[in-house]
Nucleic acid binder design. Structure first.
Length: 202
DNA sequence: AGTAGGATAATCT
DNA sequence: GATTATCCTACTG
């Protein structure tokens, strides 16, 4: 068991590794994390929401560690991050996938058409299964007062941690971490530029 | 296995 | 007006 507070206060890549096997709970469901991604702050990481400057959306990333940064994307999906690093320096770990270890019936009721393996296989699926949305954004993950709660798990042995490029972003820094051999790890996808109206016109 | 397109709205330029 | 840290379905092989 690791000290979660100390882990989250440290470098975001170390925090990401340490979050593998951690448990996140929400709405009666607990997930054991099998895949995460690290994101850094202003000027450090072109793919980070905090790369340019602090805004209303990313403000919680600039605050103290141990809070949830939950954002809405693609017009329909919520994704959950754990804020890391010291206050004033933006960093967060995106929770990409995991295995449902408590509340499988509730999890299935939230994603009725999903196989058990796919219940939390992907960041938006994970958020759905936990019932996480705007109501969790900015809430503490450690004090038990908010809708989500984070707890340390068994430390993953270094030889079981796999490292590779992050999913769906332009930059190819190897800041994605997952547990080798876990069926709940999501499939890698390269960033694809969607067809724009201008493309359509030509 | 892989690829491709559509859904759908906040956020940012 | 363009982009998006995604997911689902449908189609090809």
């Amino acid at each position: 068991m690791t000290d979660l507070r100390a882990l989250l206060a440290g470098p975001v890549q170390d925090a990401a590794r340490g979050l593998l096997n951690a448990r996140i709970s929400g709405g009666g469901v607990t997930v054991r994390l099998t895949e995460v991604e690290a994101y850094a702050g202003v000027g450090e990481d072109p793919s980070s929401h905090a790369h340019r400057r602090q805004t209303a959306r990313n403000a919680v990333m600039f605050g103290p560690p141990g809070f949830a940064y939950v954002y809405f994307t693609y017009g329909m999906h919520w994704c959950v991050n754990v804020v890391c690093g010291p206050a004033g320096r933006a960093a967060a770990v995106l929770l990409r996938a995991g295995e449902v270890v408590e509340g499988p019936e509730i999890a299935r009721s939230r994603r009725p058409r999903s196989s058990d393996r796919d219940l939390a296989r992907g960041p938006a699926r994970l958020a759905t299964v936990l019932g996480a949305d705007r109501n969790a954004d900015g809430a503490s993950l450690l004090d038990g007062a908010g809708p989500l709660r984070l707890a340390a798990g068994e430390r993953a042995p270094a030889d079981r941690i796999r490292i590779g490029p992050r999913v769906g972003v332009r930059t190819d820094t190897a800041w994605r971490f997952w547990l080798d051999g876990e069926p709940t790890v999501s499939v890698f996808r390269r960033h694809v530029r969607r067809r724009t109206s201008r493309d359509h016109a030509r």
